[in-house]
């Protein structure tokens, strides 16, 4: 799987908030935070803040808008890491 390391680090973050643990076990690029993992929308902000801390990046509002899936989040993380 591409980005396996990034996905694992992201998985560790979302596992705190995911209510669907089965979907968490089969997490992949297509996984949707709300529809699949059943993360409460009020906790999406915690996912974003945790990602900022874990990867030491700043996620602006334009980037945050897209972060509803693993794939979109990986893209944002990779883009922000490459700017460093």
């Amino acid at each position: 799987m591409p980005n396996e390391n990034l996905i694992n680090r992201l998985k560790a973050i979302v596992s705190t908030y995911a209510q669907n643990k089965e979907a968490l076990n089969s997490i992949n690029e297509e996984t949707d935070f709300i529809n699949d993992l059943k993360i409460n929308s009020a906790n999406l902000v915690d996912v974003i803040l945790d990602v900022e801390e874990e990867f030491d990046i700043v996620i602006d509002n334009d980037a945050m808008e897209k972060m509803l899936t693993v794939k979109a989040s990986i893209a944002v993380i990779e883009a922000k890491l490459s700017e460093k």
Partner: peptide, 23 residues
């Protein structure tokens, strides 16, 4: 709907960056 008891446990609005990202 927000269940206030759950909100008090599941979220910390005082967390650094929390208000800035939402409001």
């Amino acid at each position: 709907l927000v269940d206030l008891y759950c909100a008090s446990i599941e979220s910390n609005w005082k967390r650094k960056g929390f208000l800035d990202k939402l409001f």
